[in-house]
C-alpha cells in the first residue's frame, strides 16, 4: 500500500487559497444577504467586523492545521511557494515574482495604515447588555406582584372586601396590573411600543433601540429587582461597561415612585407575554 496519503501533486496550495478566498467572499457578501433573507430585512445585513475576525481567523487556523498535519502535505503546500521564490526561472516568472514581492508589503502597509489612522468613526465598543446588578437590589421582591399583608388589608378595607383573603390579594394584584398598564402606556409605550416589542413611535430615532420585551433574551431572563434598578436609574445609571452614553432610557426614579415602577414591571411582563426569571430551586 502506498505510504503517501492524498498526494495532490502541489494542488494543496491551490485548494487552501481557494478555501480562504471562498470564506472571505461568503462572510462579506453571501452571509449578509442570507441573514437579511432569514429575518426578512430589506437590505443585506453586514457581518460585524468582530465576528468576521473570529470566523476568518478560525478558517486561517484551520488551513494552517490542515497543511501541517503531515510532512507530505506540508511539502505539497510549501514546494510551489519555494519554487516561486527561488531566484531564477523564466522571465515571465521573474516579472510575476517582482509584482508579488512588491504588492504584498504594500497591501500590508496600507492595511496597517488604515487600521491605525485616526478616523472620525466612533470606536467599536462592546456593550454589556446585562451588567451586574448592584447588591442592594438583589434580594428585593416586587410589591405589586407579591403585596404584603398590610397592603392587602388596606385594599380590602378600601374596597369593602372581607379581609386579607386570597381573593382580595388577587384583586389587589389585578388592580396593580391595571394601574401598571396605564402607567406603561403613558410612560413606556412611546419607546417600547404598545406590544412591548421595542417598536414604539419614538423608537426609530434611537441608534440603540429600546429593548424588545417579547424577546426571550431581555426581561424574560432577568429577575424583577433587576428591572427596578434599570427603570429607576435609567441609562445614566448604567455602569461604564454597559455604555450609558448610548442609552436613551430616562431616569424614571426622578418621576415615578418605586411602587409605581413595580406596577409597571408587573404590567410589562403581561403585555410582553413573558414570565420573569424566578430564582431556581435546587434539585
Amino acid at each position: 500500500m502506498p505510504e503517501r496519503p492524498d498526494d495532490d501533486g502541489g494542488k494543496l496550495l491551490l485548494t487552501t487559497s481557494v478555501t480562504l478566498i471562498a470564506m472571505y467572499v461568503f462572510l462579506r457578501f453571501i452571509f449578509p444577504t442570507l441573514a437579511a433573507w432569514i429575518v426578512s430585512a430589506p437590505d443585506p445585513l453586514p457581518i460585524p467586523g468582530f465576528a468576521f475576525l473570529i470566523y476568518f481567523g478560525l478558517t486561517f487556523v484551520g488551513v494552517a492545521i490542515f497543511v501541517t498535519t503531515s510532512d507530505v502535505r506540508l511539502s505539497d503546500f510549501a514546494t510551489p511557494i519555494e519554487r516561486f521564490l527561488i531566484p531564477g526561472g523564466s522571465s515571465r516568472r521573474r516579472q510575476v515574482r517582482m509584482v508579488v514581492l512588491v504588492a504584498v508589503p504594500l497591501i500590508g502597509a496600507y492595511n496597517t495604515y488604515a487600521a491605525l489612522a485616526p478616523s472620525s468613526e466612533p470606536p467599536t465598543e462592546s456593550r454589556l447588555q446585562h451588567p451586574t446588578i448592584p447588591g442592594e437590589f438583589e434580594k428585593l421582591e416586587s410589591e405589586a406582584r407579591h403585596p404584603g399583608e398590610e397592603a392587602v388589608h388596606a385594599f380590602a378595607a378600601a374596597n369593602g372586601l372581607e379581609g386579607a383573603t386570597p381573593e382580595a390579594k388577587a384583586a389587589l394584584i389585578a388592580a396593580n396590573m391595571e394601574e401598571g398598564r396605564v402607567l406603561y402606556m403613558i410612560n413606556c409605550r412611546p419607546c417600547h411600543g404598545t406590544k412591548a416589542d421595542g417598536v414604539g413611535p419614538m423608537a426609530r430615532g434611537f441608534r440603540l433601540k429600546p429593548a424588545n420585551f417579547t424577546d426571550p433574551g431581555t426581561i424574560a431572563t432577568l429577575v424583577e429587582p433587576y428591572l427596578l434598578w434599570r427603570v429607576r436609574t435609567g441609562g445614566i445609571g448604567l455602569p461604564g461597561v454597559a455604555a450609558p452614553w448610548d442609552s436613551a432610557m430616562p431616569r424614571w426614579g426622578a418621576d415615578l415612585s418605586d411602587e409605581q415602577i413595580w406596577k409597571i414591571i408587573l404590567a410589562e411582563y403581561d403585555i410582553g407575554a413573558v414570565e420573569p426569571r424566578l430564582p431556581e430551586t435546587m434539585e
Binding site: 460585524p48 468613526e121 466612533p122 462592546s126
Partner: peptide
C-alpha cells in the same frame, strides 16, 4: 460572544 462588539456604523 453574546455581547458582540459593534461599531456605530454597524
Amino acid at each position: 460572544p453574546h455581547n458582540l462588539p459593534l461599531s456605530a456604523a454597524e
